[in-house]
Each structure stands twice: as C-alpha cells, then as structure tokens.
Design a protein around this nucleic acid. Structure first.
Lengths: 92, 92
DNA sequence: TATACATTTAGATAATTTTCTAAATACCTA
DNA sequence: TAGGTATTTAGAAAATTATCTAAATGTATA
C-alpha cells in the first residue's frame, strides 16, 4: 500500500483521479486539463497505475484510463482504523 | 489537505501514527522505536503536526504527542467519494 | 507505404525531501 | 546556579521526485 500513499501525495495525481471519477479518459484528454507536458502526465499516469489506482486499456491509437477502486477500499480501511475506539480500554 | 497527503506518504510517519494510536508518547519514546536519529524523528513529528495529524503538549521537559483524528475524518471523506456510485447516471 | 497522430521512453536538470551531526534551547534538580 | 536530560534548530549531504525536450514506438489512413 506504500505505492498508493506515495501516488496520492501529489496534487496533480489526485486531480487526475478526480477527473477519472467522472468518466474514463484518454491520456491526451487528461493531459489537456493540465499545464504540463504530455510526458510528465504520462509519468504520473504510470505511477498511478503502478499503485493500482487506475487501469489502462489500449483502444486504437489511444490509451483509455479508468479508476480502479480496489486499492481505495484498502486505504479507507487503513484510515478507519484510526477512528476506531481504542480496543485496549473497553467501555463496560 | 495537501499537507496531510504529503505527511502520510512516508512509511516512518505512518508508523508513528500507528504507535500513537495505541497510546500517547513522548518524542523520545517515539524515537526509540526507530533506527533513526532524534532530529530526523523530530522533523517527521513536525510535518505530522503541521498536517494536523498529531497534537503535542509540553509536560515538564518532555513533549507528549497524541493523535489528532479530525483530519483523518476529512481524508476518509475524500476517499469515500471515489467509491460512491457515479451521480451523473442514476439507476432508475 | 508514407504520413500523421497518440503515447511512451530516454536522458538531463531542477526542486524537494530525507537524513545526518553539531549546536542551541528549555526544563529539572542537586 | 551548575550539570544533566529531552527536544528542537541549523546547515549540509544524499536520495528521490517532478519536469522538460527530443526521440522512439505503435496505430491509423490516404
């Protein structure tokens, strides 16, 4: 899960996730939303993919990216753990 | 919330949070759990504090650190958003 | 097959982050 | 107030990350 935390620490990558939440997008369509070179976006997409936060599928000459929510669930579980009442000191 | 994501991207800092989940600890007690110099731990604690993930309180010559869960709630909310069903395309 | 388009790979540079040692600060107690 | 303990601040070195331009790859189409 370390890769996911790393991937999530960058604002551009979080913005990519927000965009993909609305709908699947090609690499180029994602890049259009940023003031950044395409290779830089490609690099960010690669990190998101390695963290299993997105999936990609080749379609003709485009590559379509989509959210992969399975790791999101893991991360939420990790966080929820901090809100659980301390288990050592049960309320009687 | 960017500072929180940044703070959470480091494994040592996440380990500190796990330790503080069990009980409040002094800076020295935290440092004892790591193979790392005290100034380095101090630096990590500072980042966690700036992200509002921990609080600190001076007690004599020690500084006691504790979890601050308010930002955890915000972050969980951010994540939950990705698991919500797409709101544009309602099921009828 | 030649050309154009979409994306990635390579390689370099700049910026940020992590970590260290040495020194400073703050508090406690004899 | 002198000495000891706990922690932080300062400043530097090393590692990692973000970003760019140029070139390469793969696909579509005229």
């Amino acid at each position: 899960m370390n890769e996911a935390f790393k991937a999530l620490s960058d604002p551009s990558r979080r913005k990519i996730l927000q965009l993909l939440k609305k709908k699947d997008l090609s690499a180029g369509e994602i890049a259009d939303q940023f003031n950044m070179s395409k290779p830089s976006i490609s690099h960010h997409l690669n990190l998101l993919k390695q963290a299993n936060l997105v999936d990609s599928e080749k379609k003709g000459q485009q590559i379509i990216y989509s959210l992969n929510t399975s790791v999101f669930e893991d991360v939420i579980t990790w966080f929820m753990d901090f809100l659980k009442k301390d288990e050592g000191e049960e309320i009687k």
